[in-house]
C-alpha cells in the first residue's frame, strides 16, 4: 500500500505513543489496530524508522523481547510527540478538504 511519507510517519509515531516496540511489532500493531486494513510493506516501514530515528523523532535500544530474543526497540522522543500532534492535525485538515470536494459523506474520518 502506497502511503504518503508523512502519513506513514504519523502512523508509526502514533503506534509508538503507547510504548516501545521493535520493527516487526510496529508492523504488526499497525496491521491489527487497523483491523488488517493497513498492511504496510516492511520494505517501506523500515527505512521510515531509520528516517525518523535520524530526525530524532524516535530512538532505539537493544532489549530482550518477550521470547527472550534480542531486538531493537524504538520509542517516541519528546520531539516525536510534538511531531505526532502536528501530523495529526495536518491529516485531519487533509481529510476534511477531500471531504469538501467529494461532497457528502466522503469518509467519516475525524475532522
Amino acid at each position: 500500500m502506497d502511503l504518503l511519507q508523512g502519513t506513514l510517519d504519523m502512523l508509526v509515531l502514533r503506534t509508538l505513543l503507547f510504548g516501545p516496540l521493535h520493527g516487526y511489532g510496529i508492523a504488526k500493531a499497525i496491521r491489527s489496530t487497523s483491523n488488517e486494513a493497513l498492511d504496510i510493506e516492511f520494505g517501506s516501514l523500515y527505512p521510515a524508522l531509520k528516517r525518523l530515528e535520524m530526525k530524532g523523532l524516535i530512538e532505539s535500544n537493544w532489549e530482550k523481547s518477550e521470547l527472550n530474543r534480542r531486538a531493537r526497540y524504538y520509542r517516541l522522543t519528546q520531539s516525536g510527540r510534538e511531531q505526532l500532534h502536528a501530523e495529526h492535525s495536518k491529516w485531519a485538515e487533509f481529510v476534511n478538504a477531500i471531504g469538501l470536494v467529494m461532497g457528502k459523506d466522503p469518509g467519516k474520518a475525524e475532522g
Binding site: 502514533r14 503506534t15 505513543l17 503507547f18 487497523s34 486494513a37 466522503p106 469518509g107 467519516k108 475525524e110
Partner: peptide
C-alpha cells in the same frame, strides 16, 4: 476510488484513535 479512499481513511482513523 471513493470506496478505497473511505477504507483507507477508516483504517487510519482506527490506528489514530486506538487507545492502548
Amino acid at each position: 476510488e471513493t470506496a478505497g479512499w473511505r477504507r483507507l481513511c477508516d483504517a487510519i482513523s482506527l490506528v489514530l484513535e486506538t487507545a492502548e
